[in-house]
Design a binder for these strands. Sequence first.
DNA 1: TCAGCGAATTGATAAATATCAATCTTGAGG
DNA 2: CCTCAAGATTGATATTTATCAATTCGCTGA
Lengths: 237, 237
Amino acid sequence: MRMEDAAQVRETPLFSGMSEQVFDALTTGAFLQTFPPHVELFREGEAADFLYVVMDGMVELYAAWNNREAAITTVRPTGTFILAAVVRDACYLMSARTLGRCRLLMLPAASVRQALTSDHAFAIAMIDELSGCYRAAVKAQKNLKLRTGVERLAAYLLQTGTRSGASGFELPCDKRTLASLLGMTAENLSRAFATLRPYGVIVSGSTITLAAPDDLARLAKPAALIDDLDPAALGDG
Amino acid sequence: MRMEDAAQVRETPLFSGMSEQVFDALTTGAFLQTFPPHVELFREGEAADFLYVVMDGMVELYAAWNNREAAITTVRPTGTFILAAVVRDACYLMSARTLGRCRLLMLPAASVRQALTSDHAFAIAMIDELSGCYRAAVKAQKNLKLRTGVERLAAYLLQTGTRSGASGFELPCDKRTLASLLGMTAENLSRAFATLRPYGVIVSGSTITLAAPDDLARLAKPAALIDDLDPAALGDG
DNA sequence: TCAGCGAATTGATAAATATCAATCTTGAGG
DNA sequence: CCTCAAGATTGATATTTATCAATTCGCTGA
């Protein structure tokens, strides 16, 4: 593993307070792998052998049941995914696939568990990380239960536009995946975009422009207890 | 706090590995309160002052947005709720109200955080608890995204019936709340029950009898990665 | 530049779900 | 036992969402 990569991992809050010795032990047994787009990393139900850290690219976590499939969330750098399965030595609840070309760091699950028992600061950081994951999942559930599809899209666009600081931004993934993340079909995502046109939402391929964010906000009614101005509900695992 | 109550709390996995000294410090500043039904304990958005432990009764966690409301989960003895807000010193994402008469132990949030930093075993137990909460929330999200309302009810009845070990059981809360937990209106819950009648689901007030669990299972298609045979997705916070 | 393929959009229709209202049922209190 | 209020059911209708199919769009590779 290159020094820049180790430094990148070391900077994330989960690993930053860890002792040097424990960090070295953890990263010594790690793998850094590059994957092309659309590669399945693991399937839900499999034993959790690794904790994954996204160094580059984006990963989709999704679930399947009865010939149906739904995206649950996406993970960007330097997010980790499948944390709970690793600490519990349980199976994965979601499958994972790369959305674009990805570089992932894979930390052996047993080493992570060992590090938790030997480094109190790491355990405290893990508590912070897991509580963040849990809160994001609660927020996603609230989003699904309290809002219609159009409202969810509106909130998502407002949040993403605000975060990008520009009136125009690129959607971070293809529309089919975005639709699934928002809990709707691709057809209904197209229709929802069309519904938001009078609210200043201009769509050109994957480029979105918010020409009237105040109008859009009046429809979306953003709520700090559901939406985030930092990467969470729809961005991190 | 009575010795039986302290003993009850001490037996739960979250607190059982904690040192005697830390446990005493934690419970010394605690309050044990009895509440009648339909009492609001706190509102979403408020600062998290206490970690709650259910000693008796059942608590509903719910959320509101834009004049809409949805139940998120319920908590039974000896479950805790609002764990993530406490460890993060953040606000509550959900409101809480008693469903029936409740006896709750309230542990000061600051004491809980102090205990985490001073007792490594408690931190490890907290990681286990939080990862359980997170997994339950992911499962609930999968339930909402992958199943129709009727399917969710079928799965819930199968799970609850199986857990009770009898063909007949009592619903643990009123039907309006159950409907909201399952992500539907009370009207549609009634209709869903009627839809399940040919699958052997007999409803008499709050008493449910599963006369043909195999038929019901064929409809519900229970999945270990969504449903639980232990109290989780719809039972604990 | 062109062809082909996958993504996205649009249209039609069906299914799931919510809303509103009326009626029925049940449990608590007098 | 009776009354009343709240919970639940049923019916009618509207809205949201999904499914299926056809068409258009955009990107990649030859």
